Simulated assay, not measured.
Amino acid sequence: MKPFSYERPATVARALALVADDPGAVYVAGGTNLFDHLKLGIAEPRLLVDVTGLPLNGVETLPSGGLRIGANVRNADLAAHPAVRERYPVVSQALLAGASPQLRNMATLAGNLMQRTRCLHFQNPRTPCNKREPGSGCAALEDRTGHAAVLGASESCVAVHPSDLAVALCAVDAVACVRGRAGSRRIPVTSLHRLPGGHPERDTVLDHGGLITAVELPPLPMAARSRYRKVGDRASFSFALVSVAVALDLDGGTIRDARIAFGGLATKPWRASRAEGALRGAPATAERFAAAAREELSAARTVGANAYKVPLARDTLVATLLDVCGRRTPGC
């Protein structure tokens, strides 16, 4: 490990100045992702700016009826918060589906959103990776492990985004509150992460030094009827092969509105707008759910051994929608 400097500022303004003025500076909170990268030798920051001392904790109800969650709220605390469990169960379920209890006790809301891919080629300094070293190539284009993205990929990168929480936040129209040297702005979580295009080294739309200070969940009554389902290699501490976050507004047997997002399929958390459009005004049946899934996945492109993801995503979405409707999966 190469030496680095360490600062623990007391104010957001000081933290912003430290990182924005130094291209080799990075923020650190729980460190559950960054410290792995330090040990692997794929991150070599000159300065770590510890933001855990900043006043970015707590969950508060907004005048609109939504929730504002501080960037430093630990994942375990957020998953257990009564308002989140009652009004946005999909968020709590996504948090509990991620990592281990020990890691959830350390990891923070903003750190979860800013974590980098777990692609094996990104994590191996001996293999080419455009995300880690722009212009070096992408070893995952001939991936044989089956983890490569089927949506949103490019010739430069097919690495899957790892966050469970980000998928759920996309499904409930969450907004990230960001501070930078130029001021404050609000970014929908659906727009926070970038598709790789020709610059896969840029994971998000944030400029260097941009700091997420909070995430706001809008008042969304349908979010009370929501689910998160994750399919992985094992039951715990496993990244998603496919996951789906769903919220429904039902009028009897008819779908008035739907929110759907996929994880494990794409280079960013994937809001399934085509599937949502196919479900609005439609009957809540397994056949219609499968048709909506096919509509969304028609743009999927497979590479190597990941073709299984398309039918798995379809079946996972159908099962989750049936669960939200209070019905059993066909064949169960």
Rank of each mutant, 00 (worst) to 15 (best):
P218Y: 07
L165F: 01
A43N: 03
R256S: 11
M222S: 13
V160W: 07
R132G: 09
P188K: 03
R314Y: 00
A107N: 05
G304F: 06
P269H: 03
L151I: 14
Q102R: 08
V12R: 09
R294L: 05
A214F: 03
R185K: 11
L211C: 09
R87D: 03
G331C: 07
L141S: 07
R259V: 04
Q93K: 11
V158I: 15
S163P: 06
G180F: 00
R186D: 12
R74L: 10
R181Y: 00
A168H: 06
P55D: 13
P196V: 09
H161L: 00
E155T: 13
L312Y: 13
N130R: 14
A25N: 07
L250V: 03
P269W: 02
E60A: 15
N130Y: 14
T117R: 10
G152C: 10
A284V: 08
P9C: 07
D257G: 08
L109V: 12
A182C: 00
V28F: 02
V324P: 03
L165I: 01
E276C: 11
L321R: 05
A107G: 14
L47A: 02
R118E: 04
G24H: 02
G30C: 05
G210A: 15
E142A: 14
N57E: 15
L109N: 09
R132F: 01
S243F: 00
L297S: 06
K39N: 12
M222F: 04
L120W: 15
V73Y: 06
G152P: 13
R85C: 05
A214C: 11
P200Q: 09
V28L: 10
T145C: 15
R132W: 02
I255Q: 08
N306K: 12
S156Q: 13
C129R: 10
V303P: 00
G65Q: 08
G197R: 11
A284N: 06
G326A: 05
A17W: 00
L217S: 08
C138V: 08
V242A: 08
T117W: 07
R116P: 12
K309C: 10
A266P: 11
C138E: 09
T52L: 15
V310W: 14
L95E: 01
M222Y: 01
A290K: 08
A159K: 11
A319R: 13
R126Q: 15
P125D: 11
L206W: 04
A139E: 15
A291W: 05
S154T: 14
D315T: 12
R280P: 10
A319E: 14
C170K: 01
A272P: 01
V19F: 05
A97C: 13
G70A: 10
A13H: 08
I260T: 07
D143S: 14
S163M: 02
L95A: 01
D323K: 08
Y27C: 08
G331M: 03
V91K: 05
M106G: 00
L47C: 03
R85I: 03
D203Y: 09
